[in-house]
Design a protein around this nucleic acid. Structure first.
Lengths: 219, 219
DNA sequence: GCTTGTGAACACATTCACAGCC
DNA sequence: GGCTGTGAATGTGTTCACAAGC
């Protein structure tokens, strides 16, 4: 009666599911009711067969010869990703990037709710951003305890990111998303993911210079 | 006499090289002169053997029994990534996120220079951000032509991102980094990369809910 | 006939283990 | 002895091709 592995979805698939979810939502808003793997694949920039394989991980519910029901598929993906129930996040660091994140509509619509904004600068404490009032980072532990936040987002300068990470972990936050340009270490059981905004740019630039090896034209 | 593939570095390696570059720079700033693969690996959160394999792609110059020379390695990586010469970028969309990007020090220190900031909102045009004056997006083509920008960064709302992308591509920009939450399409020869800030958060949340399948404690 | 779902083949990436060198 | 560099083994992810089903 024990399912072998009820939900073991490859990480690469999870990332793409989030993208499918976004596109399906816009399709649903546009009044579309069904979609084929080919259409959805081209709208998300992936291979159709890969898309079907991704969907097969969630015990897919497409109809052969027809396609997928947009609403049903969207709900199923949302359920698997846990995007239907709201998750409480605290955000530390409200400089330019942090403020952008606090205001970013994409989070709220995908089940992430900021329940605490924290900053160390006195002039930022008390400001209202994205419907919340910025609190003093000294109260981090109290805010986490009061809000039961399960996710922490770090958008501080690099030199304080590690100590913020330590405090979040100690306060019981088990998932941390780091935007500061440092590699963080955290105790076992705490999941840290790092988003480096300039890495993508650097990869892009590298591919660009690859493409045209400057003066190596075939003439 | 034709080299088979002079420089074909796996994309995953390129992304990590950018991280090594950042850490090596901070090591160099701290006065460190040599580093072993183990040290650098733990500072960047990767496997030591993988790190050595990454470095081997650039015809590595470590010394057995000793390690790598920090400065030499940093320069070699910078050269391979093309991070030594400055690359001109235009940024379109100066809302919260765009402003954060324009101000982000991480770009400048890695060879990316914003040479144009463009926005459609009249109240933003003329503002100074990160040392530049915001220009009207109507002048996009002129700005690209005047600055010879090779990279475009899109941080606009989703609904105008595609048309900005089209105009950038038509103006001759061959590398585009998209922060808007839409999948963009571009003509062949134009490289588009998409950074979705909430995808990482969604993966993190998924892993978190995986970890503790709520009420399935082994007691 | 059209589209899904999936095993099998392939390509890519990571890790291991050790030979080569200082 | 210590650390790099790398082939070999493993694991992961992607693509193909086609059978199954509407």
């Amino acid at each position: 009666m024990i399912q072998p592995r009820p939900r073991s979805i490859p990480e690469a698939t999870v990332a793409r599911l989030a993208v499918y979810l976004r596109v399906l939502t816009s399709f649903a808003d546009g009044g579309r009711t069904t979609v084929s793997s080919g259409d959805l694949a081209s709208a998300t920039g992936v291979n159709p067969a890969g898309l079907r394989k991704d969907l097969s991980h969630l015990g897919s519910c497409g109809v052969r010869g027809v396609g997928y029901d947009v609403r049903a598929l969207r709900e199923r993906i949302a359920r698997v990703l846990g995007a239907e129930r709201s998750r409480a996040c605290v955000l530390v660091g409200l400089g330019n990037l942090g403020s952008a994140l606090a205001d970013y509509a994409g989070f709220g619509s995908r089940g992430f709710e900021f329940v605490g904004l924290l900053d160390a600068a006195p002039e930022r404490v008390g400001q209202r951003i994205g419907g919340l009032t910025v609190q003093d980072v000294a109260d981090l532990e109290a805010v986490v305890a009061a809000t039961q936040a399960s996710i922490g987002v770090i958008a501080t300068p690099a030199d304080v990111a590690q100590q913020v990470c330590d405090r979040l972990a100690a306060a019981g936050v088990r998932s941390i998303l780091n935007f500061a340009p440092v590699t963080l270490s955290a105790p076992a059981g705490v999941d840290v993911r790092h988003v480096d905004l300039s890495v993508e740019l650097q990869v892009l630039a590298f591919l660009g210079q690859q493409r045209v090896p400057v003066g190596e034209a075939s003439a």
